[in-house]
Write a protein that binds this DNA or RNA. Structure first.
Lengths: 152, 152
DNA sequence: GGGTGTGTGTCAGTCTTCTGACACGAGTGA
DNA sequence: TCACTCGTGTCAGAAGACTGACACACACCC
């Protein structure tokens, strides 16, 4: 079919392209995570916990770019599956620090390798300095969007 | 942070940063579109139709990065609201080409200005060549992710 | 002390989007 | 001509995420 060149003509918009890239990345991640019975948010949660043990549900939510309510139900699910543990009582305040179980770590290991392969594929064709420039550009965009709260 | 070579380092991961940037952009767009009673997908649909009148539901879905089922329900809603029209019978095959109504065009005008201001804000602090480099980098990522179907 | 503000965990309902499935039209190649 | 494939429109159910709301804990400042 002739789907090739009939691309959309928002081709000058960096915002649109950013969305396109993010969408392609997400799709690629879903593709490799699905055989492992894992969603992107699920994986993100585990990865965050591996690198920063003891994160709270709300902190995990921010790190995975979902609401804390969504992360809450995900954590309940992961606790039932035995991939994550949380104390029944808060050590301090109301914050319940979450941690990976050995089972969670094993699940993460496979997923992390799969995701890594996707990222490597995505970066194919870009040399070191190009990647560095892209990194700085994206950081700049995030900063600009966050710093300016809204239209005054 | 005791992650092996096969893992992902969130701090330095371009993939994670890409998701972060996309999330920030989406949040900023939602913020300015909400007062107009419009969602991001809603806006995307209108913008696509303005630039390429006669697009089918499936083509719109691809352009807005949602499934054709999602676009289908959105289009039904937009038709009821009188922002979009589609013929009751397909001129050829089963494809129903969609078009903006004057009302849709008016709604888009406001939204488009708002979204443009967000994009301008996002690009603040980047000069012409930096934007160009970022554009090429994102294009490269999209191409790499699409061309390689999956991990063999 | 007491008020205020921020951050958190949690429950409930709603909404959007997705997955799965079906039938139909058009093009392709044997 | 006829299977075969691809893209499409559409319906139905399920899953995921969101908004709204409440109570509680901590930190700050008057």
């Amino acid at each position: 079919m002739s789907q090739g060149e009939s691309g959309i003509h928002l081709e000058t918009s960096l915002g649109y392209l950013l969305k396109e890239a993010s969408s392609a990345l997400r799709a690629a991640m879903e593709e490799v995570l699905r055989p492992l019975g894992m969603t992107v948010t699920h994986y993100s949660c585990l990865e965050l916990l591996a690198q920063r043990p003891g994160l709270s549900s709300s902190e995990l939510a921010r790190g995975a770019f979902v609401t804390r309510q969504s992360m809450h139900v995900l954590l309940q699910h992961l606790e039932r599956e035995g991939q994550v543990t949380r104390p029944t009582e808060a050590p301090v305040g109301k914050v319940l620090p979450a941690r990976l179980t050995p089972r969670g770590r094993r699940a993460l290991a496979k997923a992390s390798a799969a995701v890594r392969s996707v990222e490597v594929r995505m970066l194919a064709g870009m040399d070191e300095s190009e990647q560095e420039n892209a990194f700085r550009a994206l950081q700049s965009m995030v900063r600009s969007l966050r710093d300016d709260p809204a239209t005054p």
